[in-house]
């Protein structure tokens, strides 16, 4: 099977709608098909991967922890819109330090999150075969 480039575009925050957790579920299921997968976070979607989410008070599953497992699923390209972060007074240091172990580099831990400008994101999006929006 030829590998295609799949991008999951996440534009909503974690708990107000079901989009964020549904997106993550689809990403994990699709990981079994061993395609070239990337995730993009823009608009309020950047809040999905901010550090320090605590859900005890709202009785919902804290699926922010699951993003730390993505590296094990060979999903290690998480692009975050610089402009969306800045509009919200956020920076890369507010995001979870998500990493993966690079099989081709003696399993060295490397960051999965990459903050990109809209222009960079534009170029990345135009390379995709499939783009799924949540």
């Amino acid at each position: 099977m030829a590998t295609k480039k799949f991008m999951y575009l996440n534009r909503r925050s974690s708990f107000g709608t079901v989009y964020a957790i549904e997106s993550l579920e689809v990403v994990l299921i699709a990981a079994a098909f061993e395609q070239d997968v990337s995730l993009a976070f823009m608009d309020d979607g950047v809040y999905q991967i901010v550090e320090g989410q605590e859900t005890d008070g709202i009785g919902m599953k804290n699926f922010s922890k699951t993003f730390h497992a993505l590296g094990d699923y060979d999903i290690n390209k998480l692009y975050v819109s610089k402009e969306s972060l800045e509009e919200r007074g956020l920076s890369e240091s507010d995001l979870m330090p998500l990493v993966y172990e690079d099989e081709d580099d003696d399993w060295e831990e490397k960051p999965s999150v990459k903050v990109v400008t809209n222009d960079e994101l534009k170029a990345i999006m135009s390379e995709q075969d499939v783009c799924l929006s949540f």
Partner: peptide
């Protein structure tokens, strides 16, 4: 803001 986000990332041929 869907339209604005689209316009932010649309390339020259789209």
């Amino acid at each position: 803001n869907s339209l604005q986000s689209c316009l932010n990332t649309i390339d020259d041929t789209s």
